[in-house]
Nucleic acid binder design. Structure first.
Lengths: 344, 344
DNA sequence: TCCCATAATGTTAGCGCTAAAATTTATATC
DNA sequence: GATATAAATTTTAGCGCTAACATTATGGGA
């Protein structure tokens, strides 16, 4: 009972602390700290005694104390539109794999595609004083941009490149180019009455459509009636509904570019129900090339985007910056690949 | 220059602190703390002066210091198999919505379906001294269980109920019952040569299969050849491959229960390629009732599970516990619904 | 008038850890 | 063996905040 920690009326919850470990191991608490965080700098025998004491006492380090004393949090903040979106869950995995391997924690938050939410989320996250922050996209509220610029930590803007000057680091693809590439592909294949289906029109989706439309217009094939877009969240069901709208407005449409694969699946299912043959009567293309796109019937022509790599690259750049390395190339365009399949 | 903060050689990074705000507002730092965290207890004029000073200085609170001084972290840890799984992303959204509304941060980590990873993740998270923790499932390594029991914080075990005694709180559904319900449904519909396709056989998937098989066996309809399972991660493509294996082993199979909807989609696509008519030649059922299941052709019979509600309920229970409320019902079974559609 | 309750604010001390400087101990060099 | 050098460890002093207690104003009611 004599050596039970903190029987006094202090504020402590009676947790086992570094100094408990230290007195058990017969060294100073600083030595224990080093034995745990920088073992090289401690003699082997001390290291062993510390390890024993840690195990015997069930010591769990306190990160809040560590952050406060060390003036860094060993965490990075990740601000994305929505975790429950297959696109972002792949990106997150890339970030996660790098961060967890380096001992960094991830603070994750959803903006639900709202710039206001994004700003308040960033403000909230900065109270953790993360060592770095990854945000989605290049366009954000001025308030958010100001916060990030003043935070004094590395910032990675993820998903898109080329639309505007990044705050700091930037990894992604050119959504405008990707949209343009798809338009050229469809024109090359001989389609002339080409429609576009869009939902949850975030900045990237808008850029894809813009790139697509610009090419159509340059070829004299732009027809406003064939652009069907809604701010609603994108779902498979919605793809079918939007196809209905498109065909009602422009029945002679012979090809349709869906702003993402989910919509395209919905379009394919709707065509099956309407007995519209793909691609003979209607060509269909998607975007992101999700796993199912190569399995569906007909297999879906889509734009393959390096989602996992984007996350991984963003986190890698952040880690290198945190290690004090110079980043020779602050903007990285990872490129895309048009995956031609049976649907178009 | 006299009032610029921390020009000395201290360890501070020159951040704006509470006492900077305090001296600008002409009050003590404790009063600023109260003005920010418990505004009711501070006079209106002081509140205003503090707010002005905060804005003028761009003060950002330091959560590490707050956690350390307050002996709580205002964060909850969430341990799930994989964020990049549609099932869990729905659950996460439920947790996230509750937590962020209450000012709690979420620490999220992936176990990638490994109990070892789960244990080390839990150990890592406990260093943050989260105010509560949500983990997936009832079965975990003994070491993890011991850690959680000793952590002295509320624990919610999520996704499944009824298999064993929970550590603390428990929200989910009975996967065994759900599997059994599906088996009974198929038997009622007259199918007699029923197969099962499984992948990424976590504890829940195993329970679903077990419940399914038990009912088949009781009806004298269990045939080992028709159980095709793999530990590989579940994908749409894999569904098609497993169907091939099943039909090779037992060509007279007339119905198949897929352990999740992704596999079922793959089965449907493969049947389309093989010109197997669903449900006439082969009935197909899935599990989880993802959004696309009602849109695919034929629409997929599945078991609808309250994913978002599970997350929300788990977080709610945690919050109530953290507010000191008594939880009269520590185990909550949210139930499931067999969604009969055209595929079976 | 005094007394006591209540509200508003201030003071003190310390949460558990680590940076930096100070000290001790081991090792190499002549 | 003395000296210089490096390695291992300890000491000191906070990091920025809040719990707990102390103090000071404010307002009735006797």
């Amino acid at each position: 009972m004599a050596n039970s920690p903190s029987q006094n009326r202090s504020r402590s919850k009676g947790r086992v602390t570094l100094s408990d470990v230290a007195s058990m191991a017969g060294v100073s608490s600083m030595t224990v700290s080093r034995a745990l965080n920088d073992p090289e700098r401690v003699s082997e025998q001390v290291r062993d005694r510390v390890r024993e004491a840690v195990e015997a006492l069930g010591y769990i380090p306190n990160r809040a104390a560590r952050s406060l004393a060390g003036q860094r949090s060993y965490s990075i903040a990740v601000v994305i539109p929505s975790v429950s979106n297959a696109v972002f869950s792949n990106v997150i995995k890339g970030i996660y794999d790098v961060c967890s391997a380096r001992g960094y924690e991830m603070l994750m938050g959803n903006t639900y595609y709202s710039v206001q939410q994004e700003s308040s989320l960033i403000a909230k996250f900065l109270t953790h004083h993360p060592d770095g922050i990854i945000v989605t996209g290049l366009n954000m509220a001025d308030s958010a941009r100001t916060l990030l610029q003043g935070a004094g930590i590395p910032v990675v803007q993820l998903m898109e490149v080329g639309e505007s000057e990044p705050i700091d680091l930037n990894v992604g693809i050119s959504h405008r180019d990707a949209g343009a590439a798809m338009a050229r592909y469809m024109l090359d294949k001989g389609y002339r009455h080409i429609g576009v289906l869009g939902a949850q029109m975030d900045h990237r989706a808008q850029r894809r459509i813009q790139g697509f439309i610009d090419v159509l217009a340059a070829a004299g094939r732009y027809d406003e009636r064939r652009i069907v877009a809604t701010p609603e969240p994108s779902t498979v069901r919605l793809g079918g509904l939007l196809l209905g709208d498109l065909l009602a407005a422009a029945p002679d449409t012979d090809a349709v570019f869906c702003i993402n694969d989910d919509l395209a699946y919905g379009v394919i299912y709707e065509c099956q129900r309407r007995h519209i043959r793909i691609p003979q009567q209607l060509a269909v293309a998607g975007f992101n090339d999700l796993e199912a796109s190569s399995c569906i019937n007909p297999s879906l022509t889509s734009v393959s985007t390096p989602l996992y790599e984007m996350g991984k690259t963003a986190a890698d750049m952040l880690m290198r910056r945190l290690n004090g390395e110079h980043i020779e190339q602050p903007v990285v365009d990872l490129g895309f690949k048009l995956q031609a399949r049976d649907s178009a």
